[in-house]
């Protein structure tokens, strides 16, 4: 299967998007002082990595990985395996999203509690514990 211009264009576009999103979110996580912005950047980073995982199992012009009829014909099976999307990265991402949901909720609750107790969300001022 020869790759057309459009395929190349979209794949490159997605890759650059991922790179830029990862760069921006890592900057947000590392350098921004506000805890709220840190958490937002963290969720962007999670989504970037999730899309990267899906992207690794993706094929252009593919079919869903559902085998409609069980056939012992090797030719058909081979055609199916070469054209179907790899479902495992999607399963991994699904698990990661669920875990991320729990962690993000917990982080947001903690941020709320930090604000209640410190009256600030500036991470430079929350330094009662010196590591």
């Amino acid at each position: 299967m020869s790759t057309s211009f459009l395929e190349n264009f979209f794949i490159t576009l997605i890759l650059y998007n991922l790179l830029v999103a990862a760069g921006i979110s890592i900057y947000g996580v590392v350098a921004r002082p506000s805890i709220t912005k840190k958490i937002i950047s963290l969720t962007i980073l999670q989504d970037t990595f999730n899309i990267l995982a899906i992207f690794l199992g993706f094929k252009v012009f593919s079919i869903p990985p559902v085998l409609l009829e069980l056939d012992s014909d090797i030719e058909k099976l081979l055609a199916f395996t070469t054209s179907a999307v790899d479902p495992l990265p999607q399963a991994l991402v699904l698990t990661a999203i669920v875990i991320g949901l729990a962690v993000n909720l917990f982080l947001i609750f903690l941020a709320l509690q930090v604000f209640r107790l410190y009256r600030t969300l500036d991470s430079r001022k929350i330094k009662e514990l010196k590591g």
């Binding site: 590392v30 350098a31 002082p33 991470s123 009662e128 010196k130 590591g131």
Partner: peptide, 8 residues
């Protein structure tokens, strides 16, 4: 420099 307690 190391144990400042600041997140960043």
């Amino acid at each position: 420099y190391v144990q400042t307690g600041v997140f960043n």
